[in-house]
Write a protein that binds this DNA or RNA. Sequence first.
DNA 1: TGTAAAGTGTCAAATAGATGACTTAAAGTC
DNA 2: GACTTTAAGTCATCTATTTGACACTTTACA
Lengths: 331, 331
Amino acid sequence: MSFDPCGILGKSPALTQLFKILEKVAPTDTTVLVTGESGTGKELLVRALHKNSPRHKGPFVPVNCGAIPKELLESELFGHEKGAFTHAIRSRPGCFELANGGTIFLDEIGELDLSLQVKILRVIQEKEFERVGGTQTKKVDVRIVAATNRNLEEEVKKGNFREDLFYRLNVIPIELPPLRERGEDILLLANFFLEKFCTLKNRPPLSFSPEVKELLLNYSWPGNVRELENFMERISILCENERVEIEDLPEKILKEQGLNQPKPQKTEAFTFPSLQDMLQLKMDLKTFLETIENKLITEALEESKGVKNKAANILGIKRTTLIEKIKKKEL
Amino acid sequence: MSFDPCGILGKSPALTQLFKILEKVAPTDTTVLVTGESGTGKELLVRALHKNSPRHKGPFVPVNCGAIPKELLESELFGHEKGAFTHAIRSRPGCFELANGGTIFLDEIGELDLSLQVKILRVIQEKEFERVGGTQTKKVDVRIVAATNRNLEEEVKKGNFREDLFYRLNVIPIELPPLRERGEDILLLANFFLEKFCTLKNRPPLSFSPEVKELLLNYSWPGNVRELENFMERISILCENERVEIEDLPEKILKEQGLNQPKPQKTEAFTFPSLQDMLQLKMDLKTFLETIENKLITEALEESKGVKNKAANILGIKRTTLIEKIKKKEL
DNA sequence: TGTAAAGTGTCAAATAGATGACTTAAAGTC
DNA sequence: GACTTTAAGTCATCTATTTGACACTTTACA
């Protein structure tokens, strides 16, 4: 009936809007150009497009044009015949052949150099190409979806990208907005990933404290969904409690908010007590350390308004241990 | 129960902090990215991580990606089939295959070129790869730990490092601080290495004069632990007496000492450390008290010129107790 | 150089401390 | 009101720490 996002992408208005377009585009064979910052999940989106298309039973072949050295890219895309170049000891089909009957996803298409752009253009227009070092013209039935995080229009102006190819690709432009513009999705995805990692690691699910939610929403997510996923995995390993608190967040998030340390009351640098201090007070080691411990416990209890559970957490000791200590010290 | 550093890494607060993270990370299969100046002992740290993981019985395979010529690296990592290239007279498994069931350590991962980055990414995501010149897809069960002394985030910005790979690797970032920021470790390691070399060379153990200790602490250690180890080896050969004096030190250390900072004389009244201080240092109660105890014991030993009997008196504890403490803390 | 005094290291028994399992009580939630 | 969540208290068990007793070495000095 409607478009199935195939795994979670988001529910923000921005995305629901997109899904409506995709729903209409999926059944066709039109080329689609997806733009969006890296990490926004362009590939996920395109996979969903493929799955919702009549070609869903055919192959889905992603090619990251930016990640493959230029010398190899042509052979990667179109394949090569034995002996076409030094290391070509045997013939090999390229991605276009592999994608026959399905969808090919040309990621980072802005990185293609001009000579390859012509060849792609030909595939789009004529559905045909030759392998590197080959003479036989091959025909394929492939849907082409491209993506880039560059501004292709500007590249066209600069002469780095063929105008005709741009227009061929850009039949349906889809702009995947960055995560920071999809407020509602941030918490949705955060919960989704966190739950995923917790299940994966066999630990009970975690929840976010209100302050943490606030911080997550305010962060700019330069790495978008990928960065979010990453942070959640980290938290699933490092967070010790059931609830994620501010201190469990990566520094990067805190730094951006300008809240490095919550309470910067004290201006002077802290120095550990010295032997002189101890002797001045005429205490022995045990008494001295106990006094310090008492003070810290008392402060922690104040901080937690008497809730021993929390106080124990602050101090990084077990609740029962704290209770024993209080009992012994008669605090 | 806790993380075993497997050989000496250090005891400074900075490191104890790290060990806590490692303790949580070791049991998992998450990828870890270690950053730190060269010579800080990244490999040692990763070995310890491996030893403390459930994979400790499996192989540990370190690969220095920066030290292997680019042409050979792919074959080194993934192996090759007979005839894959000129000198491939026989098939050979790569490091990933060798590391199956264990941990692979990709040192200097920042040096990888983009085409290999894709392949590593695939191993991380899909746990599979092909040998060079091979068609068969191989599956491996490997934990991946990477290290670099470059700033990968910057390399990503510059386009030299794939963003997606960065996020995959950087799930748990571990920053190994340079030696100069780990004051307490300097003497600990110096003693450790010196003793090692003396034993190796069958000579009685050496000790440091107080002035030498001072100099060692003030030196900036640009070559970190590796440099320290070198110096100690040199001393173990060149020093003629039982005690290392200033003249036995390499000139390099002496020359640098123009930048001595005078010891800040403490004039203020003593106040007990507060909970804030503790939290600022991200320590738990136990660690915090232990750190203070360490400091006091060290100072008492200085005060008594190393005579444990007296030091115990100063501290108001039994001599035997002091000895046990020293043993446990390896002070 | 012989001897008392001071210092060291080890070990096993005694003591203290930490923690998980279990129970109960109170506070929210639907 | 039934159910869930959160906190608190107790206790048996396990671990860590302390310490006295013993044996040995070094130092001081008569």
